[in-house]
Nucleic acid binder design. Structure first.
Lengths: 148, 148
DNA sequence: GCCAAAATCACCCGTTTGGGGGATGGTCGG
DNA sequence: CCGACCATCCCCCAAACGGGTGATTTTGGC
C-alpha cells in the first residue's frame, strides 16, 4: 500500500517536472491553463483508475461448485429397525451368515451350535422379516440396512 | 476500504471549499497553476479511483467443494466379467430373479418358462460362478458387479 | 444351409430348506 | 421367585433346491 502511494507521488512529481521543463513554454502560450489542467486531469484520472484497482482488493465472489463424490460406502446398521423387528443379536448373526451364502450346516459349524438351532434361528428371522426364503431374507435385510 | 475513498473525496471537497471561500486568493495568485493543477489532479485522481473500482469486474473464485453423497447407486454391470464367465443374457436374468428372492417356481412364472428350464439355468449359473447355493450366487454376483 | 451356442424341457435322486410342533437351561427385571 | 426373553436342541414332514443326464427347438453367424 505504502509503495503505491509513494509511486503515485513520484509519478506526479515527474509529470509536473516534465511539464515544467519541456514544452511548457510553447504550450503555455495560449491555452496554457486549460491544456495543463487537461493533461493533469487525464494523467491523474488514469493514475486514479490504476490506483483504485490496486488499492481496492478485488471484489471476490465465491462460487461454490459442489462435486458429488461417492461416499465410501459406510455401512451403519439401522438399530431402530432391529429394535422394531425384535431381532436378537444371535438372529442377526445368523442372518449375516446366511447372507454370506452359508448353508445351515456351515452356519452351525461356524457358530458352534447344532444345525437344528440354526434352523430355529432362521425360522425366527424369517418370521420377523415376514419372508419365506433365505434369499428374500438377505434381500430385505440389505434393504433395511440390517446387514451390509 | 470504501470509507477511505469517501473520506478522500470529502477531504478534497473541504479543501476546495476552503480554497475558494477563504481568502487564499493571494496564494493562488502566485502559484495558481500549481494549485489548480493540484486540485484538478486530486479531483480526477478521486474520480479515477472511483472509476477503477467500478471498472473492476468482480473476480470469480471457483471453490470446488467435495460433497460426500450417499452412493448414488450407480450400478454399472461388469460386462467384462460376464464375458469372461460366459454368462448368457438369460442366465443373468435368472440370476437377477434369484437375487430378488424368488423361488424357481416364481421365476418360471415370471419368465414364462417351465420350472425345469429355470433349474437348468440356475445350474449353469452356479457352474459358471463356481458356487453351489443360490445365496452364494447372489453374494458373488453382487461382488463381481454382475447384478445390482 | 449348416453349425454352434443358447434356450427350452424332462426325469431321477439326494440334499437343503422351511414349517410345524415341543423341550430345556440361563439371564434379567419386577 | 417368577415370568419374559433368549438361546439351545430335538423330531417329523413337505417343499424347494441342486446335480446328473439327456433331448429338442431357436437363433445367429459363416
Amino acid at each position: 500500500m505504502r509503495k503505491y502511494v509513494l509511486l503515485y507521488g513520484l509519478l506526479g512529481g515527474v509529470l509536473i517536472a516534465a511539464l515544467k521543463f519541456i514544452e511548457y513554454r510553447f504550450l503555455v502560450a495560449e491555452h496554457s491553463v486549460e491544456i495543463y489542467g487537461g493533461i493533469v486531469a487525464a494523467v491523474f484520472a488514469g493514475l486514479g483508475i490504476w490506483l483504485g484497482r490496486k488499492l481496492t482488493r478485488p471484489i471476490q465472489t465465491v462460487v461454490v461448485r459442489e462435486v458429488l463424490v461417492d461416499a465410501p460406502a459406510t455401512f451403519v446398521r439401522d438399530e431402530g429397525k432391529l429394535e422394531a423387528l425384535g431381532m436378537t443379536p444371535r438372529e442377526l448373526e445368523i442372518l449375516e451368515l446366511i447372507a454370506a451364502g452359508l448353508s445351515n450346516r456351515e452356519i452351525a459349524n461356524r457358530a458352534h451350535v447344532s444345525e437344528n438351532t440354526v434352523k430355529t434361528h432362521t425360522s425366527r428371522v424369517f418370521d420377523k422379516l415376514g419372508v419365506r426364503r433365505r434369499t428374500q431374507a438377505v434381500q430385505l435385510g440389505k434393504e433395511l440396512r440390517l446387514i451390509p
